[in-house]
Design a protein around this nucleic acid. Structure first.
Lengths: 253, 253
DNA sequence: ACTAAAGTTTCATGTGATGGAAGTTTCTGA
DNA sequence: TCAGAAACTTCCATCACATGAAACTTTAGT
């Protein structure tokens, strides 16, 4: 986040540092020692110690018997009141569960967040293939089924802005040519669903549909399947039903 | 100069105030205006304004078009890396989904947190009855199915400590006599499951079983059902299977 | 036991948080 | 449409509190 602190203008110090410290906890670092935190944030040990101590006292972090810090239950509890959890997840979970049972495949639910697909939830089973997406994780918009849906239903301007930046290409099949993507997105809007084939992970593809509310795409549901199980017709119709069901649940409440 | 300041040495720190502000977001307050935050925290407007602004800049809060603040995606994302989400929820979700499909009832997953039952997840459907429990919410240990299980498998000392405090009695059926509770808990340990009948909500009961790991009870799964659907034998066996399945998932990963 | 690394405490210093007050925008009602 | 009020934002003199180097204590490794 903040590679080096410019001495001339360090605006808000303490709070930003505290947020930086909390931000250290990501998929790669779910448990950290004080020293590790100090290294990651480039902050002096004593400063870290003090801040981390306060965060721990507040239940935002908790220290395990292994002297490592983890995200605390208080922080977790607060996060459950985010609109993401409160409205979306709660409304969608039963439907996602049914979708998971019906297809037996990886089911994911995502929203647009800072130019990336933010995975709000996912259901992964023994039967399904392993995936990179994880709840709380971010992946690019143009290489994932849910991402393409989320992007396709953005405004023309937002889409162009996205295409203007350098696009990561995780596999040879990833579509990174702006023109090809524009075509692909138009297709998504026309069909009402997106398809990816090995654009994020070798050997697997995905299908996703939008969850619409008041004419806007607020989220996307998708399944990730082994390439040779990519039965488009069946999955699209199941997904469409699920999306409608989630949308109804969102409106009804 | 500071009339309303608490005389007792208030080591009021910026960070603590920020955590207080975040703590304002609870089930009753998922969206708050600056003024409301100022009232809830008893902090001056200008101070709130500054802190909230920093939190917003960091993505810990977000301001909606209705001028209300909500918990931001950054905070939510960090919380997804809490052990609760990372290990427990992810491992348990597929099983909970199956349990939900099999029973069609409210399914809840809880852990012990600060002397209360912390609901890690719940699945609520159209078919099932409305409940108070919600993901991220706390309820008393002695009035809920999952709570009784969590309490029953604590150490003798911890149990006595819990019983020593004044126990809330949300319904006339709630058991609050220490002796009656001790008996009830012994029953839970003997049977391997707990039962409640209208001890938290009129008209509904619940059954719950422990999720054991390394001989310790790390969580509890339960269902909440209408009293006249409380088919103990069937539910206990289904729940026991689910608990075993979640425990296996926890160990296997 | 000995040593290095990790973690904790201390304290003089001055930076950055503080909050009352004044200014600005948004909402409300007639 | 326009007051008037309420909500929000900015300002700034003051000093409380965060800061981090250094010294100290505890833990882990050989």
């Amino acid at each position: 986040m903040s590679p080096a602190r410019v001495e001339s203008g360090a605006p808000t110090a303490l709070l930003e540092r505290a947020m930086d410290i909390l931000g250290c906890f990501d998929p790669k670092h779910s448990a950290l020692t004080l020293t590790q935190i100090s290294e990651l944030t480039k902050l002096p040990m004593s400063t870290c110690h003090r801040i981390v101590g306060t965060l721990e006292a507040g239940g935002f972090l908790s220290k395990g018997s292994d002297r490592k810090f983890r995200v605390g239950t208080k922080l977790w509890t607060i996060a459950q009141h985010a609109p993401l959890s409160e409205r979306l997840r709660e409304s969608a979970l039963p439907t996602l569960a049914r979708l998971y049972e019906e297809t037996g495949e990886n089911v994911t639910l995502a929203v647009l967040d800072r130019g990336q697909a933010l995975y709000v939830d996912r259901l992964v089973g023994e039967r399904s293939i392993p995936t990179i997406s994880r709840a709380g994780g971010h992946l690019p918009l143009h290489t994932t089924g849910v991402g393409k849906v989320l992007l396709a239903y953005q405004s023309e301007k937002a889409i162009e802005q996205y295409l203007a930046q350098p696009l990561p290409k995780p596999t040879p099949q990833s579509i990174t040519q702006p023109d090809a993507l524009r075509k692909d997105l138009a297709e998504v809007r026309k069909n009402g669903y997106s398809i990816t084939r090995q654009e994020m992970t070798r050997g697997s593809g995905s299908i996703a549909v939008p969850i619409m509310r008041k004419g806007k795409c607020v989220a996307a549901v998708g399944v990730i399947v082994h390439l040779n199980r990519l039965d488009i017709n069946r999955l699209v119709s199941t997904l469409t039903d699920a999306a409608a069901s989630i949308a109804a649940e969102l409106d009804g409440h």
